[in-house]
Design a binder for these strands. Sequence first.
DNA 1: CGTATGATTGACATATTTCAAGGTCTGTGG
DNA 2: CCACAGACCTTGAAATATGTCAATCATACG
Lengths: 255, 255
Amino acid sequence: MNIQPPVDINGLKQACRNCSLYDLCLPLGMAEDDLALLEKIINRRRPIQRNDHLYRPGDRMISIFAVRSGSVKTYTLTDDGQEQITGFHLPGELLGLDAISDGMHPCAARALETTSVCEIPFDRLEDLSARIPGLQRQLFRIMSREIQNDELFMMLLGKKSSEERLAAFMLSLSARFKQRGFSPTEFNLTMSRNDIANYLGLAVETVSRLFTRFDNAGIISVRRKLISIDDMDGLRRVAGLLRTPGEDGILDNLG
Amino acid sequence: MNIQPPVDINGLKQACRNCSLYDLCLPLGMAEDDLALLEKIINRRRPIQRNDHLYRPGDRMISIFAVRSGSVKTYTLTDDGQEQITGFHLPGELLGLDAISDGMHPCAARALETTSVCEIPFDRLEDLSARIPGLQRQLFRIMSREIQNDELFMMLLGKKSSEERLAAFMLSLSARFKQRGFSPTEFNLTMSRNDIANYLGLAVETVSRLFTRFDNAGIISVRRKLISIDDMDGLRRVAGLLRTPGEDGILDNLG
DNA sequence: CGTATGATTGACATATTTCAAGGTCTGTGG
DNA sequence: CCACAGACCTTGAAATATGTCAATCATACG
């Protein structure tokens, strides 16, 4: 099990410059020469399998990771051992930034499907970013963006109904798939209903009921893991992102 | 209104080295010489009054701020204009980190009492942190810590009951007051019940009821804004941070 | 195929919100 | 210095969104 086939060393190089995620990921805004320096410290790792952990709570933080393909969930454990999912991560997104302050991962990262990641040793990244202004700037930006997203999510959990939460979640996935060149209207959920419920602070049953409700309302079509968004504006309206004068709660009069 | 009395220029210098917040704030871990450089770019601002805004959503982000004394709340606005408080900030804490990615404040910061802050022009801070490794490192740490705290808070909103939320909030305040040399068991709340409820994703009435419940249970004494924690372990137990074999929900049998 | 896991659906329970009323502080202006 | 207005807080009763429990169904997988 620990015996690994040899890795293609050439494949490890030139990661970023040819990577389709270029403008979503760390290298954004860096000069060509600097990029070469960054590439030198990045390791492309062997793909990990569904349910494999990238790291667990308490693990020493050696590297941060960038999702290359696949998807990952991160979660913390409550005092009584149940998990709270803190995020679902798509290609181009960075994992482990929450571990910098303590040098230790406060949460776990687990693959939702076969997933490949780039591994970036953090001490070397830190050195490099002191020498490459564009890199430092991008790191600050990415961390800032994450804080901003967290604030948005607090609003979701603090103020929004279950309907609004699920709709907003679908829209977020849709937008992120679009950014990555996938269809924004038809995609597969890689996480279970349980994961979605956990993430959104709801019960599984509630999520399930909402899906059928959205489906009946003609807003999305749900076929197990396959989602297609049939009425984007309808979904936005449900999420509370589109003002509809004279009518609120369009699902009220539907099954 | 725009006419300002002259500012004591000497007071603006030497901010950090004599500051009691040294080890909670940005300068932590920096060499003496480097600190001098940092101090040069920091402006101590005239105190702002209760309810004054430090910035509002959409404002261009020129500087980030460090709370020097007093307290500040930050909040975003929902699509329909109500506020969602994203944090209460005590001396030594940094404000505006969520604005780096867009160069624009996504939220507002408003003083809860007379408050003084240090203003740190961000472009100069960025330059400086490329030249001072200790500063860059501390900035990464602080941002990472914020992401980590946000994750903890997601757990609070997603998984915890109203009782647990309020108890955890009181404990968080207590710990932060202690860090700053104030009493961890007796303190004044600078925010209203409304603010607390908003922050914790609850109704004001719920918070009010919980306070009287905690009080009746002998865990804390509430006298308007003045809180004293009478049974710290009891509070931890309610927050779900202390395992009590054979008994859960100690408040169940109390008014 | 049959079994296990995840998803759906229904009926019921309940924590928390909402609505409504009354109480209490605090600062202001007479 | 007192009285008053307005904001803030507390309390009760009723409403409701969501959770919990339980059963069934579909799918995937060995």
